[in-house]
Computed example of a mutant assay.
Amino acid sequence: MNDSRHGTPVPAGMHMHQLITATGERNSDELLDEFVSDIDHEALRGLYRDMLVIRRIDFEATALQRQGQLALWPPMLGQEAAQIGSVRALETEDFIFPTYRENGVAYIRGANLAGIMSTWRGSANTGWDPHEFNMATPQIIIGAQTLHATGYAMGIAMEGKESLSIAYLGDGATSQGDVHESMVFAASFQAPVVFFCQNNHWAISEPVGLQSHLPLAGRAPGYGIPSLQVDGNDVLAVLAATRWAARRARTGGGPSFIEAVTYRMGPHTTADDPTRYRGVTELEEWAAKDPLSRLRTYLLNAGMLDAETEAAIAAEADAVAAELRDGCINLADPEPMSSFENVYVDPHPVLDRQREQYRRYLSSFEGSAS
């Protein structure tokens, strides 16, 4: 057993499912193989394309923040396989409840690039219409989205629909009361919800081994929720595991919990300095397990990827990054009074009073010398 505070111990009986190794070799998995039997060469290249594009989005957004164009950005470097594998397993009608880091999921779901940036630039309260893409707005309050996902799933069950909800959460969120309550309700009502935990090993500066001495996937069975621990840097395994959970949800099997074991290779956000709490050797160890490198190696060894295709994917990623940069820089500043919009569905006297007070405050500057 691993006693390190910086890693999650794996006791006997807990198996981490994997289909593509860190060195790009294809494994067989008795449970997961069935769920990716339809994934052909073209689909694998598509998964690689998705991961490369969202990594390029991440690099561009980080650069924009460093250049003063964004107030903050939560990097997803190293977690591309977890985001792409999971979202590509979903159907359009499935409703997604993200954290603040699932910007890759939002892009694949169809959210406008400038819209995604608007939240982090401070130009808008949200970057997309939740009902247009069946994806809730980014949740900053740690773990709160699991409550929303469970409640939504209970509604799905009451209406007799075959869709599901999925809640993304990090390893740190599993220590929150909201997550505990969500899993209790999900199990009690057999709600069609998938709890998708990206264990990136660090809850800001606290290692996952400090808050959990056993794998996070081992917690769910205590609520009566089946769980899987999967290699979160293996996009094919993540796709298969999410399909496994989705089928359970759609066929009346109730909730599932997936622990995608991955690693946050960058900072928690651009306001963070990870060099203050983790060593270089740890980062190097996980860089060798990079999700893009392993799939690229597998594709090359299998003759599924050539230089021309790689160049085309890279050019597409660059074009997406250019569109993101242009859209971000050209975002219009919000009107001051717009901060009072979309706060309540119906008129509210307290909000009306605050709006009028702020309007008078702004009007006091009219006609003053610049």
Rank of each mutant, 00 (worst) to 15 (best):
A237H: 07
L214Y: 10
Q229D: 01
D234Y: 10
G218Q: 10
S212W: 03
G224M: 07
N233V: 01
R219F: 00
Y223D: 10
L210T: 15
L236N: 03
L216A: 00
G222R: 05
S212K: 08
V230R: 11
A220F: 04
L236R: 00
L216F: 02
G232V: 01
N233D: 05
V238G: 02
V238S: 05
I225G: 11
Y223N: 04
A220C: 07
I225W: 11
L216K: 00
P221L: 09
L216E: 00
G232F: 07
G222F: 04
P226A: 13
A220L: 03
D234H: 06
A217L: 10
P215A: 12
I225E: 09
L228A: 04
H213S: 14
L239P: 08
D234N: 04
L239F: 12
Q211R: 09
P226M: 10
L214Q: 09
V238F: 12
L239I: 12
Y223F: 14
P226Y: 12
I225Y: 08
L228P: 11
A217D: 04
A220R: 01
D234K: 02
A217T: 08
H213P: 06
H213W: 13
G224C: 07
L228N: 07
L228M: 15
G218R: 05
P221Y: 11
D231T: 11
G218H: 01
V238D: 01
G232H: 04
G224F: 08
L210N: 15
D231H: 12
A237F: 12
L214M: 12
G232Y: 06
R219M: 04
L236D: 00
Q211P: 04
L210P: 12
H213F: 10
H213V: 14
I225F: 07
P226E: 09
L214K: 12
P226L: 07
G224Q: 08
G218A: 12
S227E: 05
S212Y: 06
A217N: 10
Q211I: 07
A220P: 09
V235A: 00
A220V: 07
S227Y: 02
P221W: 09
Q229T: 12
G218M: 13
R219L: 03
D231Y: 04
P221S: 11
A217M: 09
L214P: 00
L210R: 14
R219K: 15
A217C: 14
V235F: 11
L214T: 13
L210C: 13
R219V: 01
G218L: 10
D231N: 15
G222L: 06
D234P: 06
H213C: 03
V230F: 14
R219G: 01
A220E: 06
Q211G: 11
R219N: 02
G224A: 11
G218D: 06
L228G: 04
L239R: 10
Y223L: 03
H213E: 07
N233I: 00
L228I: 13
A220D: 06
G222W: 02
I225R: 08
V230H: 04
H213L: 14
A220Y: 02
L236E: 01
G222K: 06
G224N: 07
L239A: 13
I225P: 09
P215H: 06
V230G: 08
Q211E: 13
D231R: 10
Q229R: 15
G224W: 10
Q211Y: 07
V238Y: 10
I225V: 14
I225S: 05
A217S: 15
S212H: 15
L228F: 11
Q229H: 05
G222D: 12
